[in-house]
Design a protein around this nucleic acid. Structure first.
Lengths: 205, 205
DNA sequence: TGTACATCAGTGAACGCGCGTTCACTGATGTAC
DNA sequence: TGTACATCAGTGAACGCGCGTTCACTGATGTAC
């Protein structure tokens, strides 16, 4: 990768990677600029060639995270194909896959105490990601008889809450310690039961 | 309360209260011993008359929290009265009420990165609290035909995940920002739909 | 192809700060007589 | 009731540390001629 010589070559990326590792390991508050710099084999002062400061680095990571997150979910949703239900379920799996594969991003996005309006760029990226979840829920809920249909925003809040709860409690080194079941199974069965409650799945599927 | 004079009177309690306030405000990593001491109008060194150190204070708070939490949920569960279903729902409401009324405790318990086995006392308190959730779920799930009954541990994991997700995403100053609905409503409707999916509530209740 | 030079990424020393923790101490409190 | 004394909760100064950030600098790189 060419860290030979005086110039690093790709310090910006190296700092982001180091920060991601640290954030995933010790949480967003435990992360320090100095340690990220050390990981990238560089003086702390060098960080300021690429970022305005500590906060700016975290924001950058959150922005990147929301963009990957939105892309992943959009890809999984695939514009509602082959069916609203299948697309919805794929989106849920993408949520969990993202949390699992990009733990540092996930933490920066949802646990750093960052305001999603910290910068316009961040606000835009976050809005795009959350819109995918809401669209998937809204489209699916059109299949529910209007009389017993919950508001789409409520539907998507339920699904998001269960997904987030499973990630926080069972997909990390979290407090409960050992997960009683694989998080993927928990999410699939949990959402399945929920959808059955809405009449979107047959009662004994 | 008698902070007159040289001796504080009830410094231990005052420190815990200050720490709770700080933890709820800035998260467990943002909390510092020195600031808690200042809040209690005392020198940082005075803390060491009552706690072995920073970690010990957090553990103490988590233990207290799990004990209040377990008591609240046991009271709400009321040994399964008047029915397994009603008791289960009351327990869920107690979960949310606890998170709302004791935010500092909740954060210390579930977001401080503390191992629940940090001390035997903590392990015991946590186990008692989690056992209430599991018992409520197990008793309720006896009403499901054995063939389509999920394992009780999975049932309670779902419910816990949705409760925790709602707390984290919508009941705090959290990322989503404004909650789309009151958290209490979200939990009630979400769990309601889930229970309907299990056949524990009539399809159109 | 070779040389002069502008650019700018990273250095290294320094700053002020607040942290957790220790230590010898002091003086208010409560008990024994 | 009054005095002597032991207890021990809180003080205040000090420590070493790592933090985020600044600054003048240096020297590798790449371009212009």
């Amino acid at each position: 990768m060419g860290k030979r010589g005086y110039h690093h070559g790709n310090l910006r990326e190296a700092l982001i990677e180091a920060a991601l590792k640290l954030i995933a390991q010790k949480g967003p508050q435990g992360f320090t600029l100095s340690e990220a710099a050390k990981d990238a084999e560089v003086t702390p002062a060098a960080v300021y060639r690429h970022f305005a400061g500590r906060e700016d680095l975290i924001v950058e990571i959150a922005v990147q995270g929301f963009e990957i997150f939105a892309d992943l979910m959009e890809f999984a949703y695939d514009d509602g194909r082959p069916s609203a239900l299948a697309a919805f379920e794929a989106t849920g799996r993408a949520y969990l896959a993202f949390a699992r594969r990009y733990p540092g991003h996930y933490v920066a996005m949802f646990e750093s105490g960052l305001s999603l309006n910290a910068t316009p760029e961040l606000a835009r990226a976050a809005a795009r990601a959350l819109a995918v979840i809401e669209k998937a829920a809204a489209r699916l809920s059109e299949h529910i008889p209007a009389a017993k249909r919950p508001p789409p925003a409520m539907f998507s809040a339920h699904v998001w809450a269960m997904s987030h709860g499973i990630v926080e409690l069972f997909a990390r080194g979290a407090p409960g310690g050992r997960a009683p079941f694989p998080p993927e199974d928990l999410l699939e069965t949990g959402i399945g039961i929920y959808l059955r409650g809405l009449g979107l799945l047959p009662p004994d599927a």
